[in-house]
């Protein structure tokens, strides 16, 4: 049996409220597993316990009860962090460091040095498209560039698991699409990704499986396709279908299949994001 990339078992986290006898239950008896190579979306409204769960998985916060494991190792143990790269929401890295210095700093924290570190820095800057800004201080980076350098630092030790908290928050559509493409490429490389995002359209595009948290409880969990498909309906898309053909199909259905009803006939739409990118791709100059 394959060891799960993330295993959360009966996780509960309770925060005492200072100067009061009350306690806040942020996560309640949560259990889930993320298989290696999966892109898993952890969804939920603000205050649903997503960030707390993420912090416990990263070993930043201890659980009140239950356990979390990363590739079979207790995530509260520091050595399990070798397998994890993390990009927090709205990160502010050391703005006095340049892009290259930032990656070297994080690389050193992971035990890299010498030519290995130099090569890794160059490779990651190229991967996230920041070679041109390698010697610019992060104080002069745009929001999208900061997210991309954040992704690069998360990848510096070549972790098997990436934890991304709102990786496209505040980024323009083009930057957001680039980050989405990067996440897809990580999946193609066999990496596991745990993604927290409020951009459900993007989650739908890239996640294999999702879990929905509400008030600290996992209310739904499963394969994305299983959760969002409407079981009793079927979609057929034609190209260049004439009005006569469509009328004939409708007549056929009405005549021969009384239990079947036509719900809707409409032209498929592209997404607003794709439309925006098509319109702006010729004129936009990136960062």
């Amino acid at each position: 049996m394959t060891t799960p990339a993330i295993a959360i078992r009966n996780l509960t986290k309770v925060f005492p409220i200072p100067f009061k006898r009350e306690r806040l239950v942020a996560v309640r008896d949560l259990s889930l597993e993320v298989a290696p190579g999966q892109v898993y979306g952890l969804l939920g409204p603000n205050g649903s316990g997503k960030s707390t769960t993420m912090k416990i998985v990263l070993g930043l916060v201890p659980p009140t009860a239950g356990s979390t494991e990363i590739f079979g190792r207790d995530s509260q143990e520091v050595d399990s962090h070798e397998e994890v790269g993390f990009l927090p929401e709205n990160p502010y890295f050391y703005k006095y460091l340049t892009g290259a210095e930032t990656l070297r700093f994080y690389g050193k924290l992971c035990g890299l040095s010498g030519s290995t570190l130099r090569d890794k820095t160059d490779e990651l800057l190229k991967l996230v498209g920041l070679e041109h800004a390698r010697d610019r201080r992060l104080g002069g980076y745009s929001k999208g560039m900061l997210q991309r350098i954040g992704l690069a630092q998360a990848l510096v030790q070549e972790p098997r698991l990436l934890v991304l908290d709102e990786p496209t928050a505040g980024v323009d559509p083009q930057g957001s699409a680039e980050i989405r493409d990067l996440i897809v490429s990580f999946k193609e490389r066999g990496m596991t990704v745990l993604l927290c995002s409020h951009l459900l359209g993007q989650v739908q595009e890239i996640c294999d499986r999702i879990g929905i948290l509400a008030h600290g409880v996992l209310v739904r969990e499963g394969r994305l396709e299983d959760l969002i498909s409407i079981e009793d309906q079927t979609e057929i898309i034609f190209r260049d279908a004439s009005p006569e053909l469509l009328a004939e199909i409708q007549a056929l259905v009405a005549r021969s299949y009384p239990k079947t009803s036509l719900v809707e006939t409409r032209k498929p739409r592209t997404t607003l994001e794709r439309y925006f990118l098509d319109v702006t791709s010729g004129s936009a100059s990136r960062d």
């Binding site: 992971c110 035990g111 991967l127 070549e158």
Partner: peptide, 30 residues
């Protein structure tokens, strides 16, 4: 942003570099 993403290394760096309980190199980096 580059068009192509490079393939992963054969041996990930995380498992090439052995974690140590206390590392003077990490402390010096900080």
């Amino acid at each position: 942003m580059p068009a192509a993403v490079e393939s992963p290394s054969a041996t990930p760096l995380a498992r090439k570099v052995k974690h140590r309980f206390f590392s003077p190199a990490r402390v010096w980096a900080l």
